[in-house]
């Protein structure tokens, strides 16, 4: 490389690296490590972290149970409509989360297109823990479906022909061959979806509100704490950062290359 290209490419690259890493360094540098334990265990932090754990796990399960069959059907269909459906399913990926929250209210709210029928039955979704899960699933499931569908499309279609001629129905092929082979895709899809759900803020606060212990997830607690006691905000942030890095590390060692 010439000096010119070193400077021309290296300069912007260095700026990019700093933009991405400096905030993480700053978070660690400004943390009040002595108060970390008391910050996290006291006040609103612990219930918020616990709620985040419960809701993100529920989201992961919903992705697995609902998203896997969807990914399978998308991967196997070569119908023209499938392309449109797939495009539609990716809208939540690019939609501003607040808009997602508004859309969820229009769906599940008291006068929403589904909510108006649920309300008379005494079922109220908005501003409940269930609403947190619904909001997180809304933003996270597309990541899961796309990751798993990609992995399923990567399977050699001749494997299915072989399995079928050996007497396997399509469900048996799915259970005994396709699913075991896409476990890495399922794992990385779950990690992506889980990480997206853990960070969910906009849709949650819009659709589920910010009630401590019920709908106040860790990101909401960080935002509230920042205005009252910044030390608590950095402490919760460090917990979230640590958990995210651990999950990423586990997946990377095992499944993500």
């Amino acid at each position: 490389m010439t000096w010119r290209s070193r400077l021309g490419l290296g300069g912007p690259a260095l700026v990019a690296v700093l933009l991405l890493t400096l905030p993480l360094v700053a978070l660690l540098a400004r943390a009040d490590w002595g108060r970390l334990v008391s910050d996290v265990t006291g006040g609103t932090a612990l219930p918020a972290l616990r709620l985040s754990l419960v809701t993100t796990s529920s989201t992961a399960v919903l992705c697995l149970v609902l998203g896997t069959p969807l990914a399978w059907l998308l991967a196997r269909s070569d119908h023209a409509g499938t392309r449109w459906l797939r495009a539609l399913l990716t809208v939540p990926l690019v939609l501003p989360p607040v808009v997602g929250g508004v859309a969820l209210l229009m769906t599940w709210g008291r006068t929403g297109i589904l909510g108006q029928y649920l309300s008379p039955l005494g079922i109220e979704i908005p501003f409940t823990t269930v609403a947190v899960v619904v909001a997180e699933t809304f933003v996270a499931m597309p990541y899961y479906v796309l990751a798993v569908e990609g992995a399923m499309r990567g399977l050699d279609p001749r494997l299915e022909s072989v399995a079928r001629t050996l007497g396997a129905s399509d469900l048996r092929y799915l259970r005994t061959v396709a699913l075991p082979l896409v476990v890495p895709g399922i794992a990385s899809g779950l990690a992506l979806a889980w990480a997206r759900a853990l960070g969910e803020f906009g849709a949650t606060i819009t659709f589920a509100g910010n009630f401590a212990g019920r709908t106040q997830t860790a990101p909401l607690a960080v935002y509230v704490a920042l205005q009252e006691d910044p030390s608590v905000a950095t402490s919760i942030s460090i917990v979230l950062l640590t958990v995210s890095v651990i999950v990423l590390g586990l997946l990377r060692g095992r499944w993500i290359r």
């Binding site: 050699d156 001749r158 494997l159 072989v162 079928r164 001629t165 050996l166 129905s169 061959v177 082979l181």
Partner: peptide, 20 residues
């Protein structure tokens, strides 16, 4: 009859063993 309802064996250029 679907492939799984036919009594056939199929062998292709690649062995296509189930890798797992």
């Amino acid at each position: 009859r679907l492939p799984e309802q036919r009594s056939v064996g199929l062998m292709l250029a690649d062995a296509l063993l189930f890798p797992h």
